[in-house]
Amino acid sequence: MAIQNNILLKIRDMKDSMTPVERMVAEYILANTEEIPHLSIKSLAQFSRTSDASVLRFCKTLGYSGYRSFIVSISASVGSMDEEQKDEYTDIQPGDDLNVVVSNISYNNMKSIEDTLSIIDRSAVAKAVQALRDTNRIVFFGIGASGLVCMDGEQKFSRINKMCHAYTDGHSQLTAATLLGKGDVAFFVSNSGDTIEILEALEITQRAGATSIALTKFNKSELADKADIVLSISTPEVTIRSGAMGSRIAMLTVIDILFAGVASAEYPNIKKYLLKTHNILAGKHRR
């Protein structure tokens, strides 16, 4: 399994949202992972055709105070990536045998979950769980495939007597955002983090004083920059829809983690709600 806080995965996922100069550093690192731990900041700047200052800014973009701490993280990640090098995400090709499709989709989904666990901020997860525990009103915002993740969140948290709803179109999202206030939680789901409707709703909820949680790809997006709590997923670099499938599975896993975190911490209080909802559904199944 991938190690926690794998910086190489973070670089891979952030690369496309970096500045052109930062991307040059990122691309050199990803293409030459074995040699990076042995390079000085001057050497890395020279080989990536940038400058010492650019490399230092790159390190700070990734959350490091300096080059030395960045290199320590690189060294810790290289071994893990070496073990997984043969196990990269595999895109689905037209005409693939069904057995190949079954294997590749299953592996990509598993790897999306594993890679997400290696980059997600555990302290952010704890903050999100606490915010969800403290509120009785949760509103989920997501468009398209992200809306399906929101609907899953609504279904789960409704079972423990949280007042919640998923809004999956732009107009209803703006209306719902306007009605939120202090003590409410606005939960935004967007892989890109740049969906216009989501950003408009985010601005409204924050003006109203609601706590905002973002579930998004690890990148430098406006959603990640502005949300109060950010939960990042790692997604594969593939072209056909298997990439979107992997990101959806990773997001659903994060929803499961949050729900289980809240339910576990509040179990004495919410046990009765879980039993009631289970019993009523079980009764339907017997008919």
Rank of each mutant, 00 (worst) to 15 (best):
R23H: 00
L215P: 01
G193F: 04
S190E: 07
L62E: 14
V129C: 01
R241H: 09
L62D: 12
G142Q: 03
D256H: 13
F259G: 02
N161Q: 10
Q206R: 14
L148W: 07
M14H: 11
A250W: 01
V100Q: 11
H165P: 06
G193M: 03
D87R: 15
G181S: 11
P94T: 05
Y67C: 02
A224N: 14
K60H: 13
H38V: 00
R159L: 09
R57T: 01
S146M: 04
N5R: 14
P37C: 07
A224G: 08
A186I: 00
K127P: 03
T216I: 00
Q46S: 13
T50G: 13
I41C: 10
G243E: 05
I138G: 02
D184K: 02
K182I: 11
T205H: 09
E22T: 03
M151A: 09
E83W: 06
F218N: 09
V102A: 04
K284E: 11
T33N: 04
V78T: 04
I204P: 10
V262G: 01
L174R: 12
H171S: 14
T277Q: 09
D52T: 09
Q206D: 05
G66H: 13
Y273C: 04
A166S: 15
F140K: 02
S221Q: 05
A208N: 15
S212M: 03
S158G: 06
S264C: 06
L275R: 12
F187S: 01
S75V: 03
S234A: 15
T178F: 14
F157I: 00
E88I: 11
E154N: 07
L8H: 10
K182E: 14
T211R: 09
K182R: 08
T195I: 04
A214L: 07
E35A: 11
S192A: 08
I105K: 02
M14Q: 09
I204H: 08
K86T: 07
V230R: 10
M151L: 13
